[in-house]
Amino acid sequence: MNTTELISLLAIAVAAAAPIVIAAIGETITERVGVINLSADGVILLAGLGGFVAAQTTKNVWIGFVAAAIVGSLVALVVAFGAITLKQSQTAIGFVLALLCTDLSSFLGAPFVLTDAPRVPSWPLPLLSDIPYLGPILFHADAVVYFTYLLIGVSWFYFYKTRPGLLLRSVGEQPSAAFARGVPVIATRYLYTIVGGALVGIAGAAFTLDIKAGWTFRHVAGYGWIALSLVIFGGWNPLKVALGAYLFGITQSLLGKAQSVVTLIPSQVFPILPFVFMILVLMVSSGDLVDRMARLFPLGVRRALLRTLRATPPNSLGKPFEQD
């Protein structure tokens, strides 16, 4: 593989990972505040459809993104109401919504299959795109891809360097302590569940209006589950979550290349391999295995290793808050 090929491969990987980064960071925000929203796989499809239809009707691609964000936040509102106010099983509600939104997207999307809608225009950034190597990989893309860079940075900064971010995390870790300090736990949870849902919705439009532009039945099914597993893989830290998404993108485009070279494995297996690979990585990173591997190393290294590799979920994740 020569340099030009490598650059194009990485550029494709960075673009292909964009919707997954957006969805995974959206879910990270939701889970950091203590709520699991399992509906992502269906919401990406339904919001993707909503965005596609809105963009087609108004002939404006950005209105498509707004519509997708609204669809995503409405579904998240249902999750929030069921999980926070009614204190029902978040797994049950999220999973039912994942199936329901998938079927809804097939049902309502039937008339729009293989129709045309505006696409996000390509927009190489002046100056930045001229940087050797990095320019073509990172800055020869479009607004959606640049939005992901911004999102990664802003969400990390917000989580760890601002006071509202601290409050967000405290609600996820110790809701009763946060409440005692005067943080409105219920309202905070509603807010960030909806924000997270809106981002998952935007990820749907990023697929249908940009990365996999167009609409067919269930054409981006499966990516929602990948995004959810990346949140665990990344240990609920936006930087590591995004890193996981890019690894997934690179795996995907490498396998796309390998498809024509490797003859031992039938080519039809390749599209499913990144999913298998990602889940296997997740199984290793979230389980006991890391602990066992770490024991092979001396104490000082071990601690650093565990801190990088091991993921500890927010303490109150999935548990309803009982306000006295």
Binding site: I272, L280, L282, M283, S286, G287
Partner: peptide
């Protein structure tokens, strides 16, 4: 492995799918 049963199950769904297609 202390993996959430949801993701263990979903992951194995993908693996089974890959195996069948293979």
């Amino acid at each position: 492995g202390r993996i959430s049963e949801i993701f263990a199950g979903l992951g194995l769904n993908f693996v089974a799918q890959g195996l069948a297609i293979f």
